[in-house]
């Protein structure tokens, strides 16, 4: 607990990254995959529409990208704030 203000800044930066990631997470699954599917029905993908593709493929691919982005971003943030592991 040497530097409390730096820790607070680190934590709020972390919470901001989490919130942005979760908005994308909800948008591709609950949004494109379910609730917004009727709006995407004009975009044809292989015999069906884009919403179907998001529900069965696209959302999973975005989830993967989100987790790796978060791991990369946070490991960088740890170093910036000097809170990384020894």
């Amino acid at each position: 607990m040497a530097d409390n203000s730096s820790n607070t800044a680190y934590w709020s930066a972390n919470v901001r990254i989490i919130l942005i990631s979760l908005v994308i997470w909800a948008l591709v699954s609950f949004g494109f995959g379910i609730l917004l599917r009727p709006m995407l029905s004009g975009i044809a993908v292989g015999g069906t529409d884009l919403g179907f593709w998001f529900a069965q493929q696209g959302s999973i691919l975005v989830f993967l990208a989100l987790i790796f982005f978060y791991a990369w971003r946070m490991n960088k943030l740890d170093a910036e704030h000097g809170v990384e592991e020894e």
């Binding site: 979760l22 959302s59 989830f63």
Partner: peptide, 24 residues
């Protein structure tokens, strides 16, 4: 068909929560 896509999104989307909110 489509209506059971919940299993696909649900069982993978949980890993985002796990990675961001709990694991570290």
């Amino acid at each position: 068909g489509y209506d059971n896509s919940s299993f696909l999104m649900g069982w993978t989307g949980g890993y985002v929560l796990l990675a961001l909110l709990l694991a570290p």
